[in-house]
Amino acid sequence: MTFQNPSRDEIKQILEQTNTIAVVGLSDNPERTSYMVSEAMQAKGYRIIPVNPNADVILGEKCYPSLKDIPHPVDLVNVFRRSEHTPPIAEETVAIGAKVLWLQLGVHNDEAAAIAQKGGVQIIMDRCIKVEDSILLPQGKSKS
């Protein structure tokens, strides 16, 4: 079966329900896409949790070496890693009980998608979360 991302309406609902985003592969270099996207999402009101074993603090938030090390709930896992590295990230996403696994633009892995789906986690692949958020929630998240 060919993978298909959720509809735009479903993605909008996911973003509206998301508060905490763990970002796997978030760089502490402000010139990197992962930093710029995460900084923009943080400015829109999302809590960004950096997952980077080589840094202590990024964007004012404590870094964790892996998803399993984060001591509080995560709504969505956003991934800035090469496609071939995503299956173990999908396994950790399921293990921590996150609701959504989001593979950034250019990242696609059918095995990771199958792991997530089997674990009850929604998956979005090959899309930029910042672009989708800007299009679908231009005024920011509605406070319910």
Rank of each mutant, 00 (worst) to 15 (best):
P6A: 03
S7V: 03
S7A: 05
E10K: 13
I11S: 03
K12A: 08
Q13H: 14
I14K: 13
L15T: 11
Q17D: 12
Q17L: 05
A22C: 01
A22Y: 01
E31F: 07
R32V: 03
R32D: 07
T33P: 08
T33E: 14
S34L: 02
M36N: 13
M36V: 11
Q42C: 07
G45A: 05
R47H: 10
V51T: 11
N52E: 13
N54V: 12
N54Q: 11
D56N: 15
I58G: 04
G60R: 11
K62T: 15
K62V: 09
Y64K: 12
S66G: 05
S66H: 10
D69R: 13
D69Y: 11
I70V: 15
L76P: 05
V79S: 14
F80W: 13
H85V: 02
P87T: 09
E91H: 02
V94E: 05
V94W: 01
I96A: 01
A98W: 01
L101R: 04
W102P: 00
L103D: 02
Q104N: 03
Q104H: 07
Q104A: 00
D110V: 11
E111N: 15
I115N: 09
I115Q: 04
G120W: 04
G120P: 01
Q122P: 05
M125D: 10
K130V: 01
V131T: 12
E132L: 10
D133C: 05
I135G: 03
L136V: 03
P138I: 12
K141Q: 15
